Computed example of a mutant assay.
Amino acid sequence: MTLNILIAPSGFKESLDAEQVADCIEVGIHRVLPNARTLKAPLVDGGEGFTKALVEATGGTLYPVEVTGPVGQKIDAFYGLLGGTRYKTAVVEMAAAAGLRHVPTEIRNPLVTTTYGVGELIKSALDAGVERILIGCGDSGTNDGGAGMAQALGVKLLDEDGNQLGFGGGELIKLKQIDLSERDPRLDWVQIDVACNWHNVLCGDRGVARVFGPQKGASPATVEQMALALEHYATVIKENLDLEVRELPGSGASGGLGTGLLALIDAKLHPRYEIVMQYLEIDNLLPKVDLVITAEGCLDYQTPKGKIPAEVARRAKRYNLPVIALAGTIGQGAEVNWQHGIDYFTSILTYPCQLQDAIADTSNLLTNAAEGIARLLIVGRQVRNCTFSGW
């Protein structure tokens, strides 16, 4: 009997994209089980790879664009046009213009990084005459509430002297007035749908500054400064636009970009898999397999809050399928994932090493870990055929 395995991973940040991760796992499985039938469904969640995955799934086209990067430098980014759609549809991932990988480690400071380049990508899509824009939020290196994005599209964010705010989330504490009068008028005629983590909110104890700020280089003092700036931002949005965003689902996505998209350019926020799974095939593949292997860079207590392994497991359990997760690291509270459909998880690391060394060797580590899983499957089959006295 042939063993059918679905490989449905996310990418490993700053290392391998989801397709490369799937390839590594497949190689490791086939070292031990050459006759196993492997089906691959590399997944994206709105972060890095979102645009390319949807473009490839629909036979669309990528277009290069030079934009302003998160620390103000010019970088090469891109947007895509989907193929086979009723309405001319662009797809944009914020990570292409303002992702953490574009912020050098030694200068990471989310008080000053900007989403201005995201607005430039949206503008390029508008220049192409699109009727709909899909925006993926994830893997951000910013915490500016989408202020830079909005400024690139003509929104004026003014201080008490009537001057435009500078770049970065730290500037939001100066915000006094929001002026939409010169916002790009084409936005009024385009449907904008945003794939974001529904669990991320802008303010409060679970606000984006406190939850994700440290990952972007923020010290404890900086985290509190960012949180205060975003609270003020939410207050001004309420006063100027009569919209309460503090704890709105998705408002904290990508350092508050969700708030800027919703409040300043009239986008609609969606749970990210509501968008992504319209274009990827995992639901059609699950009935055809016996086992599911997923993966992500870090598995921890946050994984069930909208990350790919938990979503894969949730869908797999509709068919009572066992789920194995491979991770670069196993973080705090990872055991909670057992309650969310993941039956076994393990780190791909087999020896102590520096983060940069692990990133450089991810493909080998991942392949070897998948080989180990395949060997465990063989052991499990042998055990199943044995009788144990005392059991």
Rank of each mutant, 00 (worst) to 15 (best):
V312S: 07
F212P: 05
S140M: 09
V323G: 09
P9W: 01
N163P: 14
D193Q: 15
T68Q: 13
A227Y: 14
I75V: 08
E274V: 04
G136Q: 01
S181D: 13
S251P: 03
P9V: 01
V323A: 11
S251R: 05
G207R: 15
N284K: 15
G169C: 00
C203G: 07
R183C: 08
E231T: 12
F50S: 02
F388A: 11
G380F: 06
T51N: 05
N284H: 14
A316K: 06
Q356K: 14
G69Q: 07
T105P: 00
K174V: 05
P304S: 09
A334L: 06
G59D: 00
I122Q: 12
E239C: 10
G60T: 04
E93D: 07
E244H: 05
D188S: 15
G117A: 06
L175R: 14
I275E: 06
R108E: 04
A97I: 01
C137S: 02
M277L: 12
P70H: 11
K13D: 00
A369E: 01
E182Y: 14
A327K: 03
P70S: 10
G260C: 03
T329Q: 09
R246A: 09
C298S: 15
P34I: 12
Q332N: 13
S10C: 06
L321Y: 10
F12W: 13
A97P: 00
L121M: 05
L286Y: 06
S219R: 09
L257A: 11
L134Y: 10
E120K: 07
L285M: 09
G168K: 13
P110M: 11
D205E: 15
V55G: 02
E19D: 09
E106K: 12
A8S: 13
Q73K: 11
T89H: 04
L175F: 15
P34H: 04
S251E: 05
K216I: 09
L187V: 14
E244Q: 07
H102D: 11
V27R: 11
D144V: 04
V323K: 09
E244A: 07
L230M: 13
T58D: 03
S124P: 02
V27S: 11
E231N: 15
K52P: 00
L376P: 00
A57D: 05
T61F: 04
S251D: 05
L286M: 08
A152L: 11
W338H: 15
E281T: 12
E244I: 03
R246Q: 10
A229K: 12
V32I: 14
G333P: 08
V236M: 12
V92F: 08
F12R: 03
Q225N: 13
E244W: 01
I265L: 10
C203D: 14
F345E: 01
G258K: 06
Y79C: 12
I29M: 14
K74R: 15
V92G: 05
G69H: 07
G252D: 05
V32Q: 07
W338N: 14
L269P: 02
N364R: 14
I308Q: 02
T68G: 04
E281L: 08
G297L: 02
Q356C: 12
G390F: 10
L121C: 10
Y87E: 14
S363G: 12
A152Q: 00
G119M: 12
K307M: 02
G258M: 04
L16C: 13
W391G: 02
I293H: 10
N4A: 14
G170R: 14
E26I: 06
D179G: 08
E93I: 03
G252A: 02
D266Q: 10
V379R: 07
